[in-house]
């Protein structure tokens, strides 16, 4: 790779970082707004126009707080955990393609994804299972019983749901015949989205994604009522902000991945018939991808404020007795259909 190539790669990374971090800030705002609307309230409306600057005020306040480290904590791991969380959450977005055709930049064609690797699906699964390290290390390093319990719960929960997540994806991979995200999206041309072809797989993947991102109804690792704050009880200031950021970044990653794998990614049905220029087409595709991701993000928050938290045994029962067999059945069903179609 020459200097321009490196520059372009760096540029893409910087743009992705900026977009994700700004989206996280506004996601916090929308989380509060949506919860307010559901509860017949107005929500934040004082800081900036319609309260849009509220998250920045919150972050400023958070950064001015003292960074407390418990005396008995393992200082190195205590500092490492939030960094692990946030870097893994952001890294998974690197393989998600946001448009169909390459863009010309600095006189060369640039693919609309940071890393177009052949095993994109595997990469995403691998990173999402790494995500558990951040929470577990954080819980353990704090040397606090609540934190430890939160960390333990998160590892048990994420490992259980990892399985059904991977198995749901096998259906998609069987249909497409590729692990590359770009090809999976290309295969969903028109209305042949994977949500239509794989309804069971979509539901199991969606539920597993909720569990992987620790969102309600599966936010047991941080269940406030039982565990104070769970794994981040002993965190404050910047480190807490990083954990918070990681939670929302995970949500963005999960939404982008669901949009890519099941909702057709950047595909816009009937776009080629409109006869637009290449530039306009790419813009439409990026817009479609962002809209689908945004819709999924709204769905995540809508669910959070609608459904109460599962009990721990219910969570495990659902994971092993319902999700796992359903995902397996989905594979068998897909295999049979593929066999008869061909």
């Amino acid at each position: 790779m020459d200097a321009v190539g490196v520059l372009i790669a760096l540029l893409k990374i910087v743009v992705l970082f900026a977009v994700v971090l700004l989206t996280v800030a506004e996601l916090v705002y929308f989380e509060r707004k949506i919860s307010a609307w559901i509860q017949n309230r107005i929500g934040p409306n004082r800081v900036g126009p319609a309260g849009l600057l509220q998250p920045y005020a919150d972050v400023l306040k958070l950064l001015m707080k003292e960074d407390v480290v418990p005396a008995a904590a393992n200082r190195f791991l205590h500092a490492l955990a939030p960094v692990v969380s946030i870097s893994i959450a952001l890294a998974a977005l690197a393989v998600v393609p946001i448009a169909g055709s390459p863009v010309t930049l600095f006189g060369r064609s640039v693919i609309p994804v940071i890393a177009d690797i052949d095993v994109g699906v595997l990469y995403i699964l691998a990173l999402s299972s790494m995500g558990v390290y951040g929470l577990t290390i954080g819980g353990w390093a704090s040397n606090n019983k609540y934190s430890l319990l939160g960390g333990l719960r998160s590892s048990a929960q994420m490992i259980s749901y990892e399985l059904s997540m991977g198995l749901s994806l096998i259906g998609v991979v069987m249909i497409t015949g590729s692990l590359r995200l770009d090809e999976i999206v290309r295969h969903q041309a028109g209305w042949m989205w994977n949500i239509v072809l794989q309804p069971i797989g979509f539901v199991t993947f969606l539920i597993a994604a909720f569990a992987e991102t620790n969102r309600l109804p599966f936010d047991l690792p941080e269940a406030e009522h039982e565990l104070v704050g769970g794994y981040h009880t002993e965190y404050s200031s910047f480190k807490f902000a990083l954990f918070y950021l990681a939670e929302y970044a995970n949500m963005i990653t999960a939404s982008a991945v669901i949009a890519t794998l099941y909702l057709g990614g950047w595909q816009v049905p009937g776009l080629s018939r409109l006869g637009l220029s290449t530039g306009a087409e790419i813009a439409m595709q990026i817009g479609a991808f962002l809209a689908k991701t945004a819709a999924m993000l709204f769905f995540f928050q809508w669910v959070r404020w609608s459904i109460p938290r599962f009990r721990y045994d219910q969570l495990m029962n659902l994971g092993w007795k319902v999700m796992f067999p359903a995902a397996l059945a989905n594979i068998v069903l897909t295999a049979l259909v593929l066999l008869f179609v061909e």
């Binding site: 949506i34 609307w37 559901i38 509860q39 017949n40 809508w302 669910v303 404020w305 609608s306 459904i307």
Partner: peptide
């Protein structure tokens, strides 16, 4: 349940 929360919005 989600239809109820959507209505409340």
């Amino acid at each position: 349940g989600m239809a109820i929360t959507l209505r409340q919005m």
